[in-house]
Design a protein around this nucleic acid. Sequence first.
DNA 1: CATCATGATTGTAC
DNA 2: GTACAATCATGATG
Length: 455
Amino acid sequence: MDDQSRMLQTLAGVNLAGHSVQGGMALPPPPHGHEGADGDGRKQDIGDILHQIMTITDQSLDEAQAKKHALNCHRMKPALFSVLCEIKEKTGLSIRGAQEEDPPDPQLMRLDNMLLAEGVSGPEKGGGSAAAAAAAAASGGSSDNSIEHSDYRAKLTQIRQIYHTELEKYEQACNEFTTHVMNLLREQSRTRPISPKEIERMVGIIHRKFSSIQMQLKQSTCEAVMILRSRFLDARRKRRNFSKQATEILNEYFYSHLSNPYPSEEAKEELAKKCSITVSQTLVKVPEERGNRGSVIQQTSLVSNWFGNKRIRYKKNIGKFQEEANLYAAKTAVTAAHAVAAAVQNNQTNSPTTPNSGSSGSFNLPNSGDMFMNMQSLNGDSYQGSQVGANVQSQVDTLRHVINQTGGYSDGLGGNSLYSPHNLNANGGWQDATTPSSVTSPTEGPGSVHSDTSN
DNA sequence: CATCATGATTGTAC
DNA sequence: GTACAATCATGATG
């Protein structure tokens, strides 16, 4: 505003001085009378200045410097300067004025979000990688897993550091360059028509250029993180076999539920706990969201995987699993025998209404009718709760039955198979597969054990 | 190193 | 969402 008014004043002083011209005419009227001499003088003055300006580039540096100074001090300089600025503003710069407003780049936002989520660009140690943190928490310092993850975290920190130093460098360079350019332009603005607005615009252009470089940095950082993640956290790449014990427990459950090998969620959790299948077995998959249930989800999903694989592979090649089936049948039967012995004794010595009082556990699973669970619990294992109730007598009867079968089994182990694929229906599916989680009667669990030998 | 075993993932159907 | 089937990828073994 100051400039503007000054410009008007100056213009008035230049163009209208000595003339009583109204309407702001730029050029003085044709000279006549005594005013003619004065008007001619001014015209010549302007002509001189223009000539000097036009020829200044042809002159030697010293000459030009001297002339520049002279021009700078000329009283018409501010006026010409302002006019030139205005013209420049109205012509050249207006062309790219349209794209001045830059909307937030969606890709940049994505990159930013990802870096934030990965803990690269966020606050220091703010959870680091969600995955790494979750894994570290879940593994509880278990051997090789935590090593892997500390390795992962170290690499992530490295990436983070590189990212930050690079970012800092870019910012510093940007600032330096910006101030440099600004100083240069300010300097130039003394002799060239450069308005503060233009300087501002130039700074904007510089920032945009640098932010595009920054985006490249962010992109490559993201790529590095992705590669790191796939290297360290892709569970498939880091497959570990389950422990022998875990496989046994799962197999026992599988073969004792051969008629319906679909453990319920609770059963899966129990099995997972029992097998101590934790995240240490396999690396944690990267959680999509924070605050999930962590290891429990992992455990059950591992059990589900196992049962999925087992079902399909059993079905595919029953013959191959026959031996295994026999083995686990034997185990289960022996367990059953021991359990039955205890149960029968209990039944005899205790009141019939409290048959389990002497036993350390019983069953609380929804499918607690499964003999396997009964065996486990009666055997002193960790299925807690008590839900036995009124059908105890029938269970004891069943157990007696199993004892008989056990005897039969030990005779015929080498020959006939104890497990038979008869549970599979014609198209290869399991019977009752539509209600997979809990359709097993107390007599059906071991039923599959003796199904073949009973005739 | 070839081969098999096995845990995990993916695509499809229900 | 779950189960299944196919497939991938790794681990174990000889």
